[in-house]
Amino acid sequence: MNTESLVSRRAALCGIAVALAVPSGLVTACSSTGTSTGSSPTSAGGSEPTSGAAGSAGTALVALADVPEGGGAVVDGPGGRKIVVARISATEVKAYDASCPHQGSVVAEPAGGTITCPSHGSQFGASDGSVKKGPATSGLRVVAVKVDGDQVVLT
């Protein structure tokens, strides 16, 4: 198979995706540039602030007991978006939009202080979401959370 037929197939699939008005995050994944718009996909195809959707403050994401210390969990957040929660210590958690900034794949649960994208191998620091290894060129978007009793909640 030659390169021309691969590019033509990609262009055709992206054209179909646009014609069917799929969410913008999926259309962006068709891009071969690897750039990011800096916004998070939502179920309606728009963007939302990374600190959580309006009215979602205090929404419980996961029980603290279900997030292993030194590890984490990928959970459902408001609007169906995935959020990765990393437990840094017994009482400290961090959370990020689970969409890899490289091409939008959902990242895996943190392990050993690292969050890895299974699609292309990008790695991010669990304590700050920064890029440790590409191809991603920007870090994960922070989602504001806190520990409230025995739950990790949006703030």
Score class of each variant (00 low, 15 high):
P41I: 03
T33R: 09
L20I: 10
Q103M: 01
A12I: 09
T50L: 05
E92M: 13
C30Q: 06
G79V: 06
F124Y: 13
Q123W: 06
A60I: 04
T137D: 00
V62N: 04
G55F: 14
V143T: 03
D66W: 07
T33Q: 12
T28I: 05
G113T: 02
C30H: 08
C117F: 10
S47Y: 15
T3Y: 10
P135N: 11
E109L: 00
G34H: 00
L154N: 00
G104L: 01
D128Q: 05
C117T: 14
V93C: 02
K133C: 02
P68V: 12
L13M: 09
R81T: 12
S47Q: 05
D128K: 09
A29Q: 01
A29P: 00
A73H: 12
E92P: 10
A19Y: 14
R9E: 09
R87M: 06
V143G: 01
E48A: 15
D76S: 09
D66R: 07
V7T: 02
A144Q: 09
V67I: 08
S24I: 02
K82R: 04
S39W: 12
P110M: 01
V147T: 04
P135T: 06
Q151L: 13
M1A: 12
G52E: 11
D76A: 06
T3H: 11
H120G: 05
G25H: 08
L154Q: 01
G25Q: 10
G80M: 07
I83R: 08
A108Q: 14
S127D: 15
S47G: 06
D150V: 13
G139F: 14
D66E: 11
A54N: 11
A29W: 01
A73K: 15
G25V: 02
G45I: 03
P41H: 09
S105Q: 04
V62Q: 14
V18L: 12
G139S: 12
Q151H: 15
V85M: 07
K146R: 14
V62H: 08
N2V: 00
H102P: 00
V93D: 07
E69V: 04
G15M: 05
L154A: 01
S130N: 13
A144W: 14
V145D: 12
P101W: 03
V153W: 14
A53L: 14
T137V: 01
V74S: 11
G149T: 05
T42Y: 09
G46Q: 14
T116F: 07
L140S: 05
S47A: 11
V147W: 08
Q123A: 13
A86P: 02
S122P: 15
C30R: 03
G38H: 11
T155R: 15
G58Q: 13
L154Y: 03
S119H: 10
V62K: 03
H120I: 10
I83D: 07
V18S: 02
L13E: 04
V7R: 15
A57Q: 15
S138V: 13
L64P: 13
V142A: 13
D66S: 08
G72Y: 10
E48R: 13
D150L: 04
R9W: 15
G46F: 03
T37V: 07
V131T: 03
K82Q: 13
L13D: 10
N2D: 13
G139Y: 06
A126E: 08
D66N: 09
G77A: 05
S24P: 01
A44W: 06
V131A: 12
N2E: 15
T3Q: 12
A63T: 02
V18K: 10
S119V: 15
P23F: 05
A86H: 14
M1G: 14
V27S: 07
S31Y: 00
